[in-house]
């Protein structure tokens, strides 16, 4: 075992860690913003409206993230009209390609989580809100969605961890995230075990932090479900 090269290259890992955190955070935020309207469309009763959200969710949950990322990163370059247009500034950068792929992917999963949770809202909540004379939008804003977020929290925590793990794929398309850093160290010094186990250690710590953050959040948001102290 040769951990000396790990310590001399630790700055690479730290930089990679920062890139990973950025990617995960930004894709979660963008993904969530995207997921909300998709979930709301998905619970519409009209089958015509449902086609779009259902297809979206089916595609992004049914295919591997790696393939989605390759479709965007390698695939977009196939089309001349994309390469010639202004949006190529975005697709030109591996970072943005990965971010777009991650955001679209997590939006699919998050939308499905939200849809499921909204549909499980106790009917009494709707009735009570309507009895108070709330309009549909007020009802969703004040009653349904807050309750949904609260109940979706554990599932969303899992999705966050999946996103963190999925973000390692960024290292496959030239981005130097945590996994990318491990690849660079490995290819320069030929220490596969040490370099990847170090990346694994960082990911493990990140997972641990995320899990405890969500536990704290659940503790606060779901205070009413806590067992009462005797």
């Amino acid at each position: 075992m040769d951990y000396e090269v790990i310590f001399t290259n630790i700055h690479l890992y730290i930089e990679g860690l920062w890139v990973t955190i950025q990617l995960v955070f930004l894709s979660l935020v963008c993904g969530f913003v995207l997921a909300l309207p998709i979930a709301l469309l998905a619970i519409c009763r009209s089958p015509w409206i449902q086609i779009f959200p259902k297809t979206y969710i089916y595609f992004f949950r049914g295919t591997p993230l790696l393939v989605q990322m390759f479709l965007i990163y390698h695939g977009m370059g196939q089309f001349e009209f994309v390469r010639e247009s202004v949006i190529w500034i975005v697709f030109k950068e591996a970072y943005w390609c990965a971010l777009i792929a991650f955001a679209l992917n997590t939006a699919g999963y998050t939308a499905e989580i939200l849809r499921g949770t909204i549909e499980q809202t106790p009917f009494g909540d709707f009735e009570a809100a309507r009895a108070c004379g709330m309009s549909k939008s007020t009802m969703y804003r004040r009653i349904i969605l807050p309750g949904t977020f609260r109940r979706a929290l554990p599932a969303y925590g899992n999705e966050t961890i999946f996103m963190l793990h999925g973000s390692a794929l960024a290292g496959v398309v030239t981005i130097v995230d945590l996994f990318g850093a491990a690849k660079v160290v490995n290819s320069r010094h030929f220490v596969p075990f040490e370099s990847f186990i170090t990346a694994g250690f960082f990911y493990f710590c990140l997972t641990f932090i995320i899990v405890s953050l969500f536990k704290k959040l659940e503790f606060r948001w779901n205070a009413h479900l806590r067992p009462r102290k005797v």
Binding site: H74, M76, G77, R83, W88, K92, E93, A94
Partner: peptide
């Protein structure tokens, strides 16, 4: 090469 063609 692929990225060269793609203009990256």
């Amino acid at each position: 090469y692929l990225d060269a063609i793609a203009g990256r």
